[in-house]
Write a protein that binds this DNA or RNA. Structure first.
Lengths: 206, 206
DNA sequence: CGCGCCACTGAGCAAGCGCTTAGGCCCCGA
DNA sequence: TCGGGGCCTAAGCGCTTGCTCAGTGGCGCG
């Protein structure tokens, strides 16, 4: 996949953002932040990738940090939505956990560029913005823990340490964003399937 | 643990570095890189933490990047050593895998400050330095994969995808550095024990 | 047609960056 | 006693950074 296609895919992901120039800017920022990290990315670089002068950035966003905040917010809301959909579905704890891990891990592979930014650049956010995002993450964590608790209570799972296992499962899925490469051997679907299988074993589901 | 104690513990970790000023500088750099990230850390900040003027840094290290390179090199060599000790021990694949995961995860918890730097700031290294470190990581990966392959071959483990499972186990252990906090509920020993248990389940060891 | 609006640019500012340089202190061997 | 090298500082250089501002082109509306 070339740079142009990558940019196009990235742009689709942010189709809700208007006007067009603002969307091109978030999309460019996500790519730049993921490649070099927030602090190593310059506003000139972001504007350049979006095909504009550095000054144009400030018509759509107040600061560079606001860009990161918007990206983090949208990304974590999406992650929470995915986890919520699996958690609130009908079915056994085993079914719900399989679905949760499969979709959550797959999302982190498919959108690994965005995921890398929202999971590994959080520290660059301002204090209040960070606190807000931390709230979203806590809600995601609670949803997953509830599934595991349900399975433990019903006897479907054998887990000694529910919070610890929850943490490990979440950590496993999130870290997909760090190592996943679109050029690698695995597709996002395959990662989701593998991880769902591994996690069901971790909780002792038969 | 206060800042002073943290600094003291950090300093012990680098006791092999001489002279004293050079050691204080690596130690200060590790703390600063872990807290803010490589690019957000200034040479003035590092020198300040080590109790010297900014110019003193350049007597002991040619550039700021050399500091990161030294930290990454030492850290990854230590990680490789730990994995090697477990891999080359006598005993069943189950015993070796348990030991490998326990010590590897525990190290990432105990030295989470250093580990965070060496695992999440790699992209800031220059190209040749990065390639050198990548070699160390590949050797660590191979050692772990060999244990899992041995267990699969002997029938101790049931694994469908050896490279995928290896990747997941390594990812799980490494990510400890991201979430572990010394003020948190878990000790490094507890993390090691929990993770060893979870991983043995992942590979289907009875 | 002409007027106001607004996305956008070129030029540039103040601050902070990594790093250098000139010079001083102090210890050690002769 | 004194010269020299190792370790350190104060000052600052050249550059880049995030961000600003006056001005411009073009589009919609009366």
């Amino acid at each position: 996949m070339g740079a142009a296609e990558r940019a196009a895919k990235e742009s689709d992901e942010w189709s809700g953002v208007t006007p067009d120039a603002a969307r091109r800017l978030v999309s460019a920022a996500v790519q730049a932040f993921a490649e070099r990290g927030y602090h190593a990315t310059t506003t000139r670089d972001i504007a350049g990738r979006a095909g504009m002068s550095p000054a144009a950035l400030y018509i759509h966003y107040k600061t560079k940090e606001e860009l990161l905040y918007r990206i983090s917010g949208t990304g974590h809301e999406e992650a929470l939505r995915i986890m919520g959909a699996a958690a609130e579905a009908q079915g056994s704890a085993t079914d719900r956990l399989r679905d949760a891990v499969r979709t959550f891990a797959r999302w982190h592979a498919e959108h690994h560029t965005t995921a890398r930014v929202i999971q590994y650049e959080l520290q660059a956010l301002g204090a209040e913005h960070y606190a807000e995002i931390a709230g979203l993450r806590r809600r995601t964590d609670r949803l997953l823990r509830q599934i595991i608790e349900d399975g433990a209570a019903s006897g479907e799972f054998r887990v000694d340490d529910v919070p610890g296992t929850t943490l490990a499962v979440l950590s496993l899925c999130v870290d997909v964003a760090r190592w996943f490469s679109a050029d690698g051997a695995r597709t996002p679907d395959e990662v989701g399937a593998l991880y769902a299988d591994l996690v069901l074993r971790m909780v002792g589901a038969s």
